[in-house]
C-alpha cells in the first residue's frame, strides 16, 4: 500500500510539474481517525498530501464530472480564441474507472481531458461496520496494521480483521482493477468473491411478493429525501434532476410515503446499466437505507437480459441508448383468443 501511495505521489507530482494536468483529484488524510477525504491537488508541492488506503470511500468520478462540466460551462462565456482545455488527473480504482467509462460513453467529456491514475483496490472500510465495532462510541484513535483494524474509544479498545469491516460491495467486487488507466500503479489486487455478487438479489427474489413489498416500504420509509445518494452518485449528473423539476413536476415533495417511494424508484431506475456498485450512495446515506439491495437487481437484470456490465468497455454503447433485434420479449402481454 505504501508503495502505491509513493508511486501515486510521484506520478501526480510529475504530471502537475509538466503541466500535463491542471488538477489531480485524489484522496487525502481525513480529519478523523481512519478516514480519507477527496482532495484537489493543483501544485506539485501539494502532491504529498495524496493517500491511498482502505479508508478512501467515495467514487471520485463524480468530482471529475463536476470539474469538467463546470469548466465547459464557463468556457461558453469566453471568446473562442481564448478558450482553453482543462485536463483532470484522477486517482481511479475499478469502480471509479467504470464510472469514467460511463461518462465517456455518454459523451460527457473527451478522453483527452482525462488522465487516469489507476490504483489497485482491495476494498474500502464500511463506516457503519466500523461504528458497530466501536460500539457506537466516538473513535479517538485508530490504526491499520497488518490487515487488522484497531480502534480506541473512551470505553475501551477494539480490534477486528480489515476483511470483516470491508463494505459489502467490495467483498463481491468483480472489477477491482481499473478497466482503463493511463498510468497504472501497484500490483494487481487479489480478486474478491465475484461469483457471489448476486446472491442477496437471488435470495430476495425468492421471497414472496408481499414480503418484498414490505421490505421496500420499510426501507423507503427511512428515507428523508436529503438526496445525498444522488449528489454523490457519479451516474447522477443531470444539471436539473427530475426530483427538483417543477415543470413538469415529476415527483411531489409531500410527506406521502408514495412520493418518497417514487423518488427512490425513479432514481434507481435511472441506474439501469449505469450502476457500477461503487457503494457511495449507501456509504453516504444518513438513514442507512438498503439501496444496494435494489440497485444490484438492476445490475443483475442488465447482465442477464442484455449481457451488459456497466462501464466495462469503451466499445459498448450505453445500455438504454442501444438495442438489439434479439432483445427478449418474454414480458410482452399476449391476450388469449377472445380475451
Amino acid at each position: 500500500m505504501e508503495n502505491v501511495e509513493k508511486k501515486l505521489r510521484e506520478e501526480a507530482k510529475g504530471l502537475l510539474a509538466e503541466k500535463k494536468v491542471d488538477v489531480v483529484v485524489g484522496y487525502e488524510k481525513g480529519t478523523l481517525p481512519l478516514t480519507a477525504t477527496p482532495c484537489f491537488i493543483t501544485t506539485p508541492e501539494e502532491a504529498d498530501r495524496l493517500v491511498w488506503n482502505p479508508f478512501c470511500v467515495l467514487n471520485l468520478a463524480k468530482f471529475v464530472h463536476d470539474l469538467l462540466s463546470q469548466h465547459h460551462e464557463a468556457q461558453k462565456r469566453v471568446k473562442p480564441e481564448a478558450r482553453r482545455k482543462k485536463v483532470v488527473g484522477v486517482v481511479a480504482r475499478g469502480c471509479t474507472s467504470r464510472s469514467l467509462v460511463i461518462h465517456l460513453q455518454e459523451k460527457q467529456y473527451g478522453r483527452d481531458e482525462l488522465v487516469i491514475l489507476g490504483v489497485p483496490c482491495g476494498g474500502y472500510l464500511d463506516e457503519k461496520k466500523l461504528a458497530a465495532l466501536a460500539g457506537g462510541e466516538e473513535i479517538r484513535e485508530g490504526s491499520l496494521d497488518d490487515g487488522k483494524i484497531a480502534v480506541k474509544t473512551v470505553k475501551g479498545e477494539h480490534q477486528a480483521p480489515l476483511k470483516e469491516l470491508l463494505a459489502d460491495n467490495c467483498l463481491v467486487c468483480r472489477f477491482n482493477q481499473p478497466v482503463i488507466a493511463d498510468i497504472q500503479t501497484g500490483e494487481i489486487a487479489p480478486v474478491a468473491e465475484a461469483e457471489k455478487e448476486y446472491d442477496p438479489v437471488t435470495a430476495f427474489e425468492n421471497l414472496p411478493p408481499e414480503a418484498r413489498w414490505a421490505y421496500f416500504e420499510k426501507e423507503m420509509a427511512k428515507c428523508i429525501r436529503c438526496a445525498a445518494c444522488r449528489n454523490v452518485c457519479p451516474s447522477c449528473y443531470c444539471r436539473i434532476c427530475f426530483a427538483e423539476q417543477s415543470q413538469p413536476r415529476w415527483v411531489d415533495i409531500g410527506a406521502d410515503p408514495s412520493d418518497t417511494q417514487l423518488f427512490q424508484l425513479m432514481r434507481m431506475y435511472h441506474m439501469v446499466g449505469r450502476c457500477v456498485d461503487c457503494g457511495s450512495c449507501t456509504a453516504v446515506c444518513p438513514m442507512g437505507v438498503d439501496l444496494r439491495k435494489f440497485l444490484k437487481k438492476l445490475d443483475k437484470d442488465a447482465f442477464s437480459m442484455f449481457g451488459h456490465r456497466a462501464g466495462v468497455s469503451m466499445d459498448e454503447p450505453a445500455l438504454l441508448g442501444a438495442y438489439k433485434e434479439t432483445d427478449g420479449e418474454e414480458f410482452i402481454f399476449e391476450p388469449k383468443h377472445g380475451g
Binding site: Y269, D301, G321
Partner: peptide, 17 residues
C-alpha cells in the same frame, strides 16, 4: 429502445413486490 426500458422497468417493479 423502448422494449429495453420496459423490460428493465417491469422486472424491477416485480422485484419490489
Amino acid at each position: 429502445t423502448a422494449r429495453r426500458k420496459f423490460a428493465a422497468l417491469k422486472s424491477f417493479l416485480g422485484y419490489i413486490g
